[in-house]
Simulated scan of single mutants.
Amino acid sequence: MSGSLYVVSTPIGNLDDLSRRALEVLGQVDWVAAEDTRHSQTLLNHLGIKARLISCHDHNEAERSPELVARLRDGESGALISDAGTPLVSDPGYRLVRACQDAGVAVVPVPGASALLAALAVSGQPSDRFLFEGFVPSKGAARENALRRLAGLDVTSVIFEAPHRVVSLLESLAGLVDADRELTLCRELTKRFETVRRGPVAELLEWVRGDKDQRRGELVLVLSPAARGEQLSEQDRALAKALLAELPVSRAARVLAAHTGLKRQELYNYLEAIDS
């Protein structure tokens, strides 16, 4: 194991989800780089692992990486973990991984639990293509613009959100999507009060408003793909109708595709539907 950095996934709730391989690696490495050493110490104590913990988080990763790379080049072995789940997924670590690769140090994945993939797997939404957005901006125009962009995507979107902001996020989405647009809310995955509920955005908004328990814990939201018409802004829909009044469907689709950047065939199908 000497001279390698192991990127180790840890449980997102249920401790039995730690793999046997992850347990062996954490028990054998010389040190463990962790986002929050206090949180990770509790996990290692529970597992009966005595490993030296080294803090590695957003605020010190750039400075800490050369030190850790030097240790690895001297023959030590190390593991990188996050507070929960798979490191680097909305968590620190990529700077350390890049530094190791640039220095010729082996970086070895030890896969396991991931809130992103767990939510996608149980969401009931299409999973052949998806976008992982992570956390959207917390407020202002940046937040609204991010949600507007997600509302127009023709692929499933996975969003992390803080519990105290979930109502405002659902309110914004409800104003951006069609009434039957689905979303799956996944809360406290693998934990005692795990919740998975799928339904129209407006329906889930009313449910979360009325049940304060749904505004607690870790949340992952999985938004279904936009229908063809939803990918167009209100202005573009108005333009589509104006084009149809003057042009055949095929020519209108060509002009609208050039204007929006969307696929011409999908726009043709949309225009044909509203023209019939």
Rank of each mutant, 00 (worst) to 15 (best):
Arg20Trp: 02
Ser123Met: 02
Ser168Asp: 04
Gly210Ile: 02
Val196Asn: 01
Ala227Pro: 00
Ala179Trp: 02
Gly152Tyr: 00
Cys100Tyr: 00
Leu204Gly: 06
Leu232Cys: 06
Glu272Asp: 15
Glu272Trp: 14
Gly78Asp: 03
Pro92Glu: 15
Gly261Glu: 04
Arg228His: 06
Glu246Asp: 11
Asp17Ser: 09
Gly3Leu: 07
Arg264Phe: 00
Val107Cys: 12
Arg251Leu: 13
Val177Ala: 08
Val255Phe: 03
Arg216Gln: 11
Glu194Met: 07
Phe193Trp: 13
Arg198Phe: 12
His164Lys: 01
Val196Gln: 00
Glu182Arg: 12
Gly210Val: 05
Gly27Met: 04
Gly175Asn: 03
Asp154Pro: 05
Thr37Arg: 10
Ile274Lys: 14
Glu63Pro: 00
Asp17Ala: 08
Glu194Ile: 07
Lys191Ile: 15
Leu247Lys: 10
Leu247Trp: 12
Leu147Thr: 01
Thr37Gln: 12
Val29Ala: 13
Arg64Pro: 04
Gly48Trp: 13
Gln265Asp: 14
Leu147Ser: 01
Phe193Cys: 03
Leu271Ser: 05
Pro109Ser: 03
Cys186Leu: 11
Ser276Ile: 08
Ala70Lys: 15
Arg21Ala: 09
Val201Ala: 11
Ala242Ile: 00
Leu53Pro: 11
Gln101Cys: 00
Gln41Phe: 05
Ala79Val: 11
Leu153Gln: 15
Glu161Cys: 06
Tyr6Gln: 11
Arg148Gln: 14
Val110Phe: 02
Val110Asp: 02
Pro163Tyr: 10
Val29Pro: 11
Ser168Trp: 02
Ala273Arg: 13
Phe160Lys: 06
Ile49Thr: 08
Pro66Ala: 06
Leu267Tyr: 10
Cys100Glu: 03
Glu218Lys: 13
Leu96His: 09
Pro66His: 03
Ala33Phe: 07
Trp31Ala: 10
Phe130Lys: 10
Leu116Trp: 01
Ser224Pro: 09
Arg148Asp: 08
Val177Pro: 00
Phe193Gln: 05
Phe193His: 11
Ala174Glu: 08
Ser127Thr: 13
Asp275Trp: 08
Thr184Asn: 14
Leu68Arg: 09
Val222His: 05
Ala258Asp: 09
Ser138Asp: 15
His39Cys: 08
Gly152Ala: 15
Arg187Gln: 14
Val208Thr: 09
Thr190Leu: 00
Pro87Leu: 13
Glu182Tyr: 09
Ala238Asp: 12
Ser250Asp: 15
Tyr6Phe: 14
Val89Ala: 05
Lys191Trp: 11
Cys56Pro: 03
Ser233Asp: 08
